[in-house]
């Protein structure tokens, strides 16, 4: 049963003079004592520029401060506020209500991540797999030991990986991935794209160890190129491209 409330004569971050309003449905679930999630509904005013995160924060401020949501930068940089918005994984701070073209907006916790409470999910497993692929340059020498003060790269060499360095670890790609939906052991598009980021870096010497790590039954071969990860990435990382290029190394098309 959904609980319905509306913003009364109180201060909202969006001026109440706004004639437009939406129904915001928020999934509520506490795994410690709830058997299943329930939706609470709130009527929230919005302007052209109001984001979903701002609407949720309005709800927290005026109706129910116990709604659990993780957020920080509010500008698609920290990767904290990923959630399912009308069924698709998006950053709440990067999604304007006016762009959704819907009078009802449903927000749920990201799929394929364990729920802490309400809209907040656990990132431990994603960070574990990210750490597993060794997300740092591997070399025998360092800048301090070398005569050169830095490891120089040509613009062309930088282009090979810079796109994949934009990853903010928001987890949207893992949430959209159809393999992640069924395979708990799959490395996931986030970690695989980051493996490519370092394998393609001309300064890195850890290619063989990284390729060995992902060349396993729940590794890169579980990606079937559905491409959903790339469609939801808020930073243009295109994990699907990175994974296919990475697979090229294992298949011998690239060296």
């Amino acid at each position: 049963m959904a609980q319905v409330s509306s913003i009364a004569e109180e201060q909202a971050s969006t001026p109440l003079s706004s004639s437009k309003s939406i129904t915001l449905r928020i999934s509520r679930y506490n795994p410690k004592h709830d058997d299943s999630s329930v939706f609470m509904e709130f009527t929230v005013p919005y302007q052209k520029w109001t984001t979903v995160l701002e609407a949720i924060l309005d709800v927290k401020k005026h109706f129910d401060h116990s709604v659990a949501v993780r957020y920080s930068c509010r500008q698609a940089t920290c990767g904290s506020c990923g959630m399912m918005i009308n069924g698709k994984p998006k950053l709440a701070c990067f999604t304007k209500i006016s762009e959704l073209n819907s009078d009802v907006i449903t927000v749920e916790p990201m799929s394929n991540f364990p729920i802490i409470r309400d809209l907040a999910v656990k990132f431990e497993r994603m960070f574990e797999t990210h750490h597993k692929i060794k997300p740092y340059l591997i070399r025998d020498d360092t800048e301090l030991e070398s005569d050169a003060k830095e490891f120089l790269q040509s613009p062309k060499e930088v282009e090979q990986y810079i796109q994949f360095a934009n990853c903010i670890k928001c987890g949207l790609c893992n949430s959209a991935c159809p393999t992640m939906a069924t395979d708990s052991s799959f490395v996931g598009p986030q970690a695989l794209a980051q493996a490519y980021r370092y394998v393609a870096d001309s300064r890195d010497k850890g290619k063989d160890s990284r390729l060995k790590m992902i060349d396993e039954p729940h590794g890169i071969w579980r990606c079937h190129f559905a491409g959903s990860c790339s469609q939801v990435c808020p930073k243009g990382v295109d994990p699907a491209m990175g994974i296919q290029l990475l697979r090229g190394y294992l298949l011998g098309f690239r060296s």
Binding site: G236, V237, D238
Partner: peptide
């Protein structure tokens, strides 16, 4: 691979 520009249309798709 290339520097992505907003609105970030994925090249692989």
């Amino acid at each position: 691979p290339a520097r992505p520009d907003y609105p970030y249309e994925p090249a692989s798709q």
